[in-house]
Simulated assay, not measured.
Amino acid sequence: MQPATPVDSEPPRAAATVVLLRDAAAGPEVLLLRRHAKASNMAGVYVFPGGKLDADDATLNPAAHLDQPHAALHERLNEPDTDHPTAAGLYVAALREALEECGLLLAEPLGGDAPVDALRARAMLREGQPFAQVLAALQLRLQTRQLAPWSRWITPLAPTMGTRRFDTRFFVAQAPADQTARHDDEETTDSLWLAPRTALEQYRDGRIDLAPPQIMSLAHLARHASVASVLAAARSQRPPLILPEPFDHEGVRVICYPGDAMHPVRERALPGPTRLHYRDRRFTPEEGFDALFD
């Protein structure tokens, strides 16, 4: 077994993504967005809303724009080496990216009972107005309490998909019931609400493309019967750090995760298989598709 050859020695970019969920008759559904076919990274792949941390995300005034102080957000993120403003900025980045990419805004009015005008907020962002200015103009405060840290993924030095490396914090949240998600027709060109297992079945059948973090996250989510169950699980744990380890075995790319015999971290971080094999343009467990749910 040979380790994969590193292609990028630059530090990974800080990023945040939010797994937006809603309850349906058959159980929870998750929002997936298809990245533009001409995107420079992960073109055509279905992902959760998210993106890199912008410098302005860490500068929002918590008293004016956040429902929690920086210290509380830092504590929930459970990253001792991350400073308080950056920790808060990761929550802000997740919420801002959700607004930009799918039009959902987890926020509350500062006064009165006026509904949150997510459409207007998104339009203002598209016009180039800073997020803090948008929130101030619409008299809104971000609902960071709605975000529960779920996991932290760092792209390996030799990524199997894409060319950039990210240090991405995954949050889970219930989508606002009074807002409608829609892709932006710029960075994303399609949006789907699917049960986690259904999304994985469509990936298996070649109907959609997914990346390994989404595959493993969807397999994890498929074990829950409701959004409340997902949020309770997230809030009862410390977000695991997941640094996948790729290697090549007999001409096949393999990605292993904490708990695998080939991974330096012996303790499991995720349910399901500890490694995926890349064959026929699909990542699958060595034991077959159903091993994602064992």
Rank of each mutant, 00 (worst) to 15 (best):
A148N: 09
M124T: 01
A63F: 11
K38T: 06
P273V: 00
Q146K: 09
D280K: 12
D290V: 05
L218E: 05
I215Q: 04
Y46F: 15
A222L: 03
L99G: 07
E287D: 12
H74M: 01
E100M: 08
A15R: 13
D8K: 08
T86S: 09
A43T: 04
I242F: 14
L106A: 01
E267K: 14
V116N: 02
M161G: 12
T284Q: 15
S9N: 11
S229G: 13
L90Q: 13
R152D: 09
Y203E: 10
P239W: 14
P273K: 00
D248V: 13
A222V: 01
R275V: 01
A173T: 06
D184W: 02
V45E: 13
A37V: 02
E186R: 11
S151H: 07
L31D: 09
A181H: 08
A173P: 13
A234W: 11
I242V: 14
A136D: 14
I215W: 04
P159R: 06
R197D: 10
L270F: 01
M42T: 11
L231M: 09
D113A: 11
P196Q: 07
L73R: 09
G112Q: 01
V7E: 11
G206P: 14
P80V: 00
D56Q: 15
Q133P: 07
D113E: 09
D67A: 10
L210W: 09
A234F: 05
A181D: 06
D167P: 08
G272N: 02
P3I: 12
A93F: 07
S236L: 12
R13D: 15
R197K: 13
Q68G: 05
N78P: 01
D294H: 08
T144M: 05
E245A: 09
H36A: 15
E201A: 13
T284I: 15
D190P: 04
D178Q: 11
I255K: 01
R204A: 13
R204M: 10
C256T: 04
A15E: 10
L66A: 03
K38I: 00
Y257C: 00
R238M: 14
F289A: 13
E250K: 03
L157F: 03
I242E: 06
A55C: 02
A225P: 03
G272T: 00
L200M: 11
A137W: 01
R182H: 11
G259E: 04
F289I: 07
G162R: 10
P149W: 12
T188D: 11
G288S: 03
D294R: 05
F289D: 14
P11A: 12
L135D: 08
A72I: 06
V230M: 03
E201M: 15
L200W: 10
L95K: 04
V116W: 07
